[in-house]
Write a protein that binds this DNA or RNA. Structure first.
Lengths: 173, 173
DNA sequence: CATCATCGTTCCGTAAACGGAACAGTCGGG
DNA sequence: CCCGACTGTTCCGTTTACGGAACGATGATG
């Protein structure tokens, strides 16, 4: 955990809001020296200090402590997916992703293990996805499901980026 | 942010692993006094200290800084839902929840605004949910969808707790 | 019972994070 | 130009979190 990274995030958040270091320090009730050192990563801040600052910025502590993308992120040619949650059950393991599909490109993904299914709920845009030889289409608000033990594809319909949630279900072997 | 809460989580995580305060302090390279004070909430730990301890426990910093359920949590008679993500689009707003339904109780929820739809994907257990007068049923791996502008219900089928993801779609009025 | 190990807490000197003040640099107005 | 208001950084005395050692309590062993 690099304190310099935390510092950069704090500074970025502050500058997004267009407020000065002096102002934020005063609002958060910390010394300017403290905030300056924190943003530079030259100090090793106390929880209390970090809390005061992030609270004033209106973000949770985790916003500066974790990567902007909370989970591991998978980048493909068209698809960017970040893992939101993993759920393990006696019968299967589920992985819940937030997914974005860039327009104009079709991404082909190889087959998963037998029995793996994908559920997609579209937030925005129109998604065309599913088995490569018989893809399905869903508009915003729609839902797709397919068994992904065959090669499958993802693409947008139209120029709009697609936002969706993707649920991968891996049956216990 | 209550340092006592952080302390309790650290202590809980340590005791889950069955290791002593002395041992964890040695492994994490911090003083026993430091760890003792941290667990009691009588100290105001430094990021470095907290990082050393949580890393040794094998959990991310956020595990002790945020609620066990990361987002705002809604508790009902049978349903506990925690907000994972909010997505706002030009057409609609989506809220993605992780949901648990306790067995043996049926929860009735009042109607939402017109056009609001719910998508549920079941992780574990068997869920019976939907419009109160015509609920639907889905086993683990299944998916339900209904328009929730009428009163609707949630209940498990059988004695097993249901785990699921719930997506609420609010069309822009 | 005596002994030893380990438990978690408390004491204490040191190192460092803290807030306030002083500092140089920059912009805008009279 | 000069001045005031502001920016962010640096200096400094005070506060406090730090690790190590000492402590009493507990449990296992001979």
């Amino acid at each position: 955990m690099d304190p310099a990274v935390v510092g950069r995030r704090v500074r970025a958040l502050r500058e997004e809001r267009g407020i000065s270091l002096s102002t934020l320090a005063r609002l958060a009730g910390v010394g300017k020296a403290t905030l300056s050192g924190l943003e530079h990563g030259t100090r090793n801040p106390t929880l209390e200090t970090l809390w005061a600052v992030t609270a004033q910025l209106g973000v949770p502590l985790t916003a500066v402590l974790t990567e902007p993308a909370a989970g591991p992120t998978v980048h493909g040619t068209a698809v960017t997916a970040t893992l939101l949650e993993v759920f393990t059950d006696t019968d299967a393991t589920y992985e819940l992703y937030r997914m974005r599909v860039a327009p104009g490109v079709t991404q082909l993904s190889p087959a998963h293990a037998p029995g793996v299914t994908e559920h997609v709920t579209v937030f925005a845009g129109v998604l065309c996805a599913g088995p490569a030889d018989a893809p399905l289409t869903a508009p915003a608000g729609g839902h797709l499901r397919w068994v992904s033990d065959v090669p499958h594809s993802y693409a947008t319909v139209g120029d709009e980026e697609v936002a969706a949630s993707l649920l991968l279900r891996y049956p216990r072997r």
